[in-house]
């Protein structure tokens, strides 16, 4: 799976919720107020289902999910 493919799939999911094509790969999803704690859970479920990885309790770190780049890096570490 290429870097771009993972990021594109993350972006497609995020777009369903924030409808923003201009979201940059480095934009902090939580700090910018775009997303809330409910979405944090949805993001975990998306990551697990879409990339077939298990988000363990030691992975509970907002840094892993704060930006498209961070999610991409997290997924690649888990794959």
């Amino acid at each position: 799976m290429t870097d771009d493919t993972i990021k594109e799939r993350i972006r497609t999911f995020l777009f369903k919720h924030i409808k923003d094509n201009e979201l940059s790969n480095d934009e902090n999803l939580f700090a910018s107020g775009l997303l809330n704690s409910l979405f944090a859970m949805q993001l975990v479920m998306f990551t697990e289902k879409e990339f077939q990885v298990k988000v363990e309790n030691e992975d509970l770190d907002l840094k892993n999910f704060s930006t498209i780049n961070a999610i991409d890096e997290f997924v690649r570490r888990k794959l």
Binding site: S37, L38, A40, M41, V44, N57, E58, L60, D61
Partner: peptide, 18 residues
């Protein structure tokens, strides 16, 4: 401790409440 510090509401309780 269940999960990690700071994730008790958003994730652990969030899972339970869901």
């Amino acid at each position: 401790l269940v999960g990690r510090i700071g994730f008790g509401f958003s994730h652990v309780a969030g899972t339970a409440l869901d």
